[in-house]
Design a binder for these strands. Sequence first.
DNA 1: CGAATATAATTGATATATCAATTATAAAAA
DNA 2: TTTTTATAATTGATATATCAATTATATTCG
Lengths: 145, 145
Amino acid sequence: MKQKNPTGTVLYTIEQTIKEYRKISQKNIGKIVSDITVDQCLLLIILDKNSNYSQKEIAELIFKDNASITRIIELMVKKNYLTRKINELDRRKFNLEITEKGKKTIELLSPIINKNRQNALDGLSQDEMEFLDKILTKIILNCKK
Amino acid sequence: MKQKNPTGTVLYTIEQTIKEYRKISQKNIGKIVSDITVDQCLLLIILDKNSNYSQKEIAELIFKDNASITRIIELMVKKNYLTRKINELDRRKFNLEITEKGKKTIELLSPIINKNRQNALDGLSQDEMEFLDKILTKIILNCKK
DNA sequence: CGAATATAATTGATATATCAATTATAAAAA
DNA sequence: TTTTTATAATTGATATATCAATTATATTCG
């Protein structure tokens, strides 16, 4: 089944892929928890693994800039997913903590997220995924130099 | 050179790839024309190939929703890249036309865009790109079903 | 130490994304 | 032809993206 591609480059397909994946992911997440986005959920999961991340580090991990992170976290605090306290060791930073609601949300949504990933990658062999990753990493390096 | 990947899936790498590509593309475009974005430029190029596209069709081609396209086009008309007139055959639609400024911009930026693409895909063989496209298309279909 | 520099985060302005509701028009059905 | 349904685009509300400027704090260097 041929896809339209007005640019004729695989870069278009890459973009299309990630958009489709995000769309279905958000849809599935929304069925379980209505007031959270894919990225907010990823942020929770990342913080859950290491609660010492600064906002700046989180921004890098989920490919957002600091300004966006500031506002996303602000909303998540307002929605009671996170708490934020000044880091007394470095008062420029904040300590972020996941609330009970946040923890429950992770429990609820982790299986959904895994299912989303599995579904998206369904039918791909380990080799194919590794190859994919390798080529993409090459492109990333090309873009960085 | 290993990349960090907090999710452990190639989907993360896909997202990273497109973000890096867009970043460098925007940077290179901005050196030549300061008031245009990657997507606006793609929109011009698409319209240049077929001036009969409706806003809805354009939206699908560049993965945006109608509301975004309405506003993007509004800005592009304001910046004098496009003109917009009601389509008398179907008064729900508009005829979009590229202005002289728009045409000049395409001429200026087409080589840049090609260079961006070439640079990003530098060192990839034809086979690798085809394989990449094939795998990604598989993922897209997985997400759509 | 104190000045200069660097870093983390915020803020403001503007553009874009997303969803739902609305408007205008066209096409289909009764 | 009138009513119903479908389609194209807009609008409003809110979230996010991006860039530049700013604030507060830390670090470095003379």
